[in-house]
Design a protein around this nucleic acid. Sequence first.
DNA 1: GTGAGTCGATAGCCTTTCAA
DNA 2: TTGAAAGGCTATCGACTCAC
Length: 243
Amino acid sequence: MFMPYRDRLYKATFIERPNRFIIRARKEDGETVTAHLPDPGRLIELLIPGREIWLRYVDNPKRKTQWSAVLCESEDARVYVSLDTMFPNRLITQALKEKRIESLKKYNYIRAEYPFAGARWDFLLENKGRSLLLEVKSVTLAENGIAYFPDAVTARGRKHVEALTTIQNEGNCDTAVLFVVQRGDVTSVRPATHIDPAFASALQKAADAGVAMLAVTTDVRLEGVELGQELPVQLNIQKGPIK
DNA sequence: GTGAGTCGATAGCCTTTCAA
DNA sequence: TTGAAAGGCTATCGACTCAC
């Protein structure tokens, strides 16, 4: 399943990141522009001065910036990595509606952004009257063919997982976490125990409680993003990548 | 039906508050 | 005084609510 970008992309060179939502980049015509960065994650492996990055122009006078970062080169320049944290939800919305994810094929798409138990969940699915709450996590960090989440300590992410565990234990509905890897050079997903051990522990407890752990890869291109195959989520991994 | 406004989400930095 | 914890702020988007 392929989802094209809605806008033309402009090649640029990353210069700096003044704050987590803003970057400065130099376009091919020499103009230096300020762009919004949709992914507020750390991204220290990706956003390195001199690296190629692609922007889209946004004609919206209400915005403070007229440019948004869309994707950049991976560390080894072999693949592109999406920087748009909104894109996975659009892609997964379409994939769920079209039943493109094998593990979730039996579920019907009900709605997105479903408020339940004091939180808002990315998707509500249903199979034969049984509901499933699905939380989507965007993954950009990878090393040696393994994707890691998160790329920075995430108390909110941990609370999300803990809430899913509680809901799963109550038994009223099923729950799942879906990691969407926004790059095509990985073969599995692991919790980043070396970055956020608390999150990794919470994820393990969630899996033990029955929260389904799913992952899909994507092939990020300059024209758009292709939904890739499902990937294994490897828990019980005590150490991070070998340096 | 449409437009305006509100809310929640994202994660790191900085400031403030509070306890030891 | 120092360290930890809590909360606000940042820019943008999409969903939702409400008024017209």
